[in-house]
Simulated scan of single mutants.
Amino acid sequence: MAARYTYTEQELTSLLKSNDRAAFEYLYDHYSSALYGIIVKIVKDEERACDAMQDTFLKIWKNIGSYNAEKGTLFTWILNIARNTAIDKLRVEVKKEKVVKLESVRDGDLSPATIFNPLPATIDLRSIVERLLPERKLLIEMVYFQGYTHEEVSERLSLPLGTVKSRIRKALQELRQVFEVDTPEAIFA
C-alpha cells in the first residue's frame, strides 16, 4: 500500500483514535512546528520547550479518544494541549524557584523586628471566613479547607466556573483587608 500524504481532519482523527502510527507521524510532521512555536513563547527556554513538546504529543496520543469534533477543530484541541502543557511546565519551574530553603535562615538573621506577631483577633481563620457572605464562605471552605479545585467546586455546585472564580476572588479580597497592615511600623509596634 502506498504511503498517504494527506488526510482530511475526519480521516486523521479516526486513524488517530485507532492508534494508527502513520497518522500520528503525519500529525507530528504537519503540526509540530506550530505547536513548538507556541510552547517556546510560553516557556522561553528551548530545553523546557522540548520537554513540553514531548509531553504534549504523549498527551495527544493518550487522550485522542476524548477529542470531540463538535467542540472545535483538531488543531485547536492539540494547540490547547500544547499551551496547557507549556503553562504547567512553567508553573513547576516557578514553584521550584520560590521554594524557600529553611536551612538558609540562620538564627542570627532573626530579630524581634523581623518576626510578625498577628493580633490575637486574626488568628482563627475559620471564624473570619464565617463572616463572609454564605456563597463566598462555602467556596472558600471547599477550596481552601477541603482541597477542591475550582473546577470541582463548579461541578459539585452546578455553578459556572467563572462565577466560582469571581466569588472566590471577592472573598479573598475581603479576607486580605482583615490581614492588611497599613504601614511597616505597625508590624513592629
Rank of each mutant, 00 (worst) to 15 (best):
L12Q: 13
L35I: 03
I60A: 03
E135F: 12
K98L: 15
R176W: 02
A189E: 12
S33R: 01
T122N: 13
T122D: 14
I81H: 01
A22Q: 12
D182N: 06
L132D: 06
E174V: 10
S18D: 14
T8C: 12
L138K: 15
L161A: 13
Y7D: 15
T149G: 03
Y67V: 11
F145G: 00
D55A: 00
N80H: 05
D124C: 08
H30T: 15
S127A: 13
A113R: 13
K17S: 11
C50G: 05
R21I: 12
L90S: 11
S14A: 15
A82P: 04
L58V: 00
L161Q: 13
Y148M: 10
L138F: 04
K17Y: 11
E25S: 13
V164E: 12
E185D: 10
A86D: 07
I39D: 07
A3I: 09
L125P: 01
K44M: 00
A3D: 11
E25F: 05
A69F: 15
P134Y: 04
T163I: 10
E151M: 05
I60F: 01
T163E: 08
D88M: 05
E185N: 01
P112Y: 04
I38F: 06
M142A: 10
T149S: 14
H30R: 14
L90C: 11
R83E: 02
L157M: 14
L159D: 09
D29C: 09
L172R: 15
P120F: 08
W61G: 05
